[in-house]
């Protein structure tokens, strides 16, 4: 259950950073968490219901990560307003 716990921890940290508006860090952590969750689904025996539940969580995290990525990309290309 080590990898599952690791995945949960990462997802939890990601949500914290997200809340704190540290979007770059949150994005990185969301990606990491999904990677671990995927490993658990593929290589560590879980019941079908548990697997689908994990997949649904991954979908949520991936959606959120995509939004953060878009936001960060826009931020990069928007020139800073002159003072």
């Amino acid at each position: 259950n080590n990898n599952l716990q690791k995945a949960i921890d990462l997802a939890s940290k990601a949500a914290q950073e997200d809340k704190a508006k540290n979007y770059e860090e949150a994005l990185r952590l969301y990606q990491h968490a999904v990677q671990y969750f995927l490993h658990v689904i593929k290589y560590e025996a879980q019941g079908d219901k548990a697997k689908q539940s994990i997949r649904a969580k991954c979908a949520e995290y991936l959606d959120r990560a995509e939004k953060l990525k878009e936001y960060l990309k826009k931020k990069e290309t928007t020139p800073a307003k002159p003072v």
């Binding site: 990606q31 990677q35 995927l38 997949r55 979908a59």
Partner: peptide
Amino acid sequence: TKADTISDEDIERQLKALGMD
């Protein structure tokens, strides 16, 4: 909903897409 029916391949694909810039 998408979250209910997502598959491992979908997850992998999205993850890869996120990783690329």
